[in-house]
Amino acid sequence: MLAFAVRRFFTALVSVWLASLVVFSAIVAIPGDPAEIILGLNSSPEARAALRTKLGLDVPAPQRYVAWLGGVLRGDFGESLNYQQPVAKLIGGRLKVSVPLSLGAAILATLLAIPLGILAAVRRGTFVDPLVVALSQLGAAIPGFWLGLLFILYFAVELRLFPAGGFTPFATDPAKWFRSLVLPMLALGLGQAAVMVRMTRAAMLEVLDQDFVRTARAKGLGQRSVVLKHALRNAMVTIITILGLSLTNVFIGSIVIEQVFALPGMGRLAITAIGTRDFPLLQGEILVYAATIVFLGFLVDLSYGLLDPRIRYS
C-alpha cells in the first residue's frame, strides 16, 4: 500500500510537470506579446523593447522555462507580468473563492445525488424511479451558466434574496460571504448532482441484481440493512470514482460559473492571464489545477483499498 502510494505520488508529480511544459509551450507558440498588450498597439518598438527587458522577456523561452521551474522548486512562483504582484499571492487570494465554491458545490451534489440515486434504484418499478431519472436528465441537459443566469434573475433580481454577483470575503462579513456563494454553489452543484444521480442509480441497480443481495434478503434481512450494508457498500467503489471525477468537474466548471457571478476566483484569473499572455501567472494557475486534479485522482485510488478489501495494490 505504501509502495503504491509513493509510486502513485511520483507519477502524479510527473503529470503535473508535463502539464506545465505543455502550457508553457502553448503560450510561447500562440501569437501575442505581453509588452505590447501592456503598452498598447500604437506603442513604439523602443518602448516595447525596454519593457520586454524589464519583464525578462528578452531571454530565450527554454531559459525562461528553466528559470521558472527552478523558482517553483524553491517555492517561488514568480511575479505576474500584468498585475506585477507575486503569483503565489494572487492565486492564494483566488483560492479563497474557488475552494469554498467547488467544495460547497461538490458537497451539495453528493448530499443530493446519493440518496436520490439509491431511492431511484430501490424504488424501481414505481413512479419514483422515472421521476428521478427525468429530473436528472433535465439537470444534466441544462448548462450551469444558464441555470446561474436564471437564479440571478429570480433570486437576485425578483426576490432580492441574494446578490446578483460579486464576492464578500469571509473575514469581512461571514453572513455576506455565505450569501455571495449560495447561488453559484447551486448553479454549479445541481448539474453535477444530476450526473451523479444517474451513476449512483446505475451502480446500485447493478449491485442489487447480484446473488449476495438475494442471499441477504433470503436470510431475512430488512430492506434498510440490505440496501445500506450490503448493496451500498459494494456500490461505493463506483460512487467514489464518480465523486472524484465530479470534484474535478466542479473545479473546472467553476471557471464559467465565476464569470457569470463575477466571483474573483481561479477561473477568472486564468482567463485574464491568457488574455494578457501573462505566462508566470498562467503557469502558476495550471500548476494548481493540475496538482488538484492529480491529487484527487490519487485520493480516489487510495480509497478503493479501504472500501473494498478485494482490491489490493501491488
Binding site: A156, V157, R160, P163, A164, G165, Q259, F261, A262
Partner: peptide, 18 residues
C-alpha cells in the same frame, strides 16, 4: 467600482439594486 465581466450579470446587478 465593481469588476463584473459578464454583461448579463452587470445588468442583473443593476436590476437587483446591487
Amino acid at each position: 467600482f465593481k469588476i463584473i465581466g459578464d454583461p448579463n450579470t452587470r445588468f442583473a446587478a443593476l436590476q437587483a439594486g446591487d
